[in-house]
């Protein structure tokens, strides 16, 4: 069926001679007002994010500055001993990470061959925003910010600047979901991949990462 006929059929059933071409007026759009008034202070946002993210099986490290961030990252590497690390090709992320991955095999997205990323153990990304209310990382992917970097490995580490944490999901949507200028893939990630399909028994890492670690830096 062609589009015109399809839309005409809908219009007829609704009781219009032809499909509407002007945006209909609306009484209400989006969330109720009381929810719009929900606003956490910057300190509360970090606390909420940590609480929610951890509650769903994620790990959070809150650090003050870049030096601490690098120490934390190097510490995770020493613990997990990855064979291969994949990372966004992103100037800011690179600056944050600095020399903390020295001695590791690090693949850069868009620089190293794509098929090698199917064997990375750890994927390191930045983020576009994080949501305190739900404990969510927002990853807008495109160019050097490859989708596979955080989808394929069993461990995902995301760098979060404290100022990137917003209170509500809607605020994050306003940042990354601008109808005419958004990335083709925006991923909202809340904790590790999970399933309860076997006798209601919850298990993590069924398809996506089994561990998700957010390093939150206060001075950013």
């Amino acid at each position: 069926m062609n589009k015109e006929a399809f839309l005409n059929r809908i219009a007829t059933q609704i009781g219009r001679p032809r499909p509407l071409t002007k945006a209909p007026s609306r009484d209400v759009v989006g969330i109720p007002d009381f929810w719009r008034e929900f606003n956490l202070s910057s300190d509360e946002r970090i606390v909420h994010f940590e609480e929610r993210f951890t509650g769903l099986g994620g790990e959070v490290r809150v650090v003050d500055d870049i030096a601490q961030l690098r120490t934390a990252l190097a510490g995770i590497m020493a613990d997990r001993k990855p064979e291969r690390i994949g990372m966004w090709n992103d100037a800011e992320l690179e600056q944050w990470v600095g020399n903390s991955l020295e001695g590791q095999t690090v693949l850069k997205w868009g620089v190293d061959p794509r098929d090698q990323f199917s064997s990375i153990n750890i994927g390191i990304t930045g983020c576009s925003a994080a949501v305190a209310d739900t404990g969510t990382l927002v990853l807008a992917c495109g160019g050097g910010r490859g989708r596979s970097v955080h989808l394929l490995p069993s461990i995902h580490i995301a760098m979060v600047g404290a100022s990137q944490i917003v209170t509500r999901l809607g605020e994050a949507l306003e940042r990354v979901a601008k109808p005419t200028e958004m990335d083709s893939y925006v991923h909202f990630v809340t904790g590790p991949s999970r399933s309860s399909d076997i006798e209601n028994d919850q298990t993590t890492g069924i398809h996506g990462p089994a561990a998700v670690i957010a390093i939150v830096m206060r001075q950013a």
Binding site: R52, L56, W109, G110, R114, D133, T134, T136, C141, G142, G143, G146, R147, S148, L169, A177, M182, D183, S184, Y185, V186, H187, F188, V189, T190, G191, P192, S193, R194, G208
Partner: peptide
């Protein structure tokens, strides 16, 4: 759940300069 683990927003196929999707 307060939110599902993943909420994915896909707007068209991969763009020029994207290496996956």
């Amino acid at each position: 759940q307060n939110i599902t683990t993943y909420m994915s927003v896909l707007t068209g196929p991969r763009r020029e300069g994207d290496h996956d999707g």
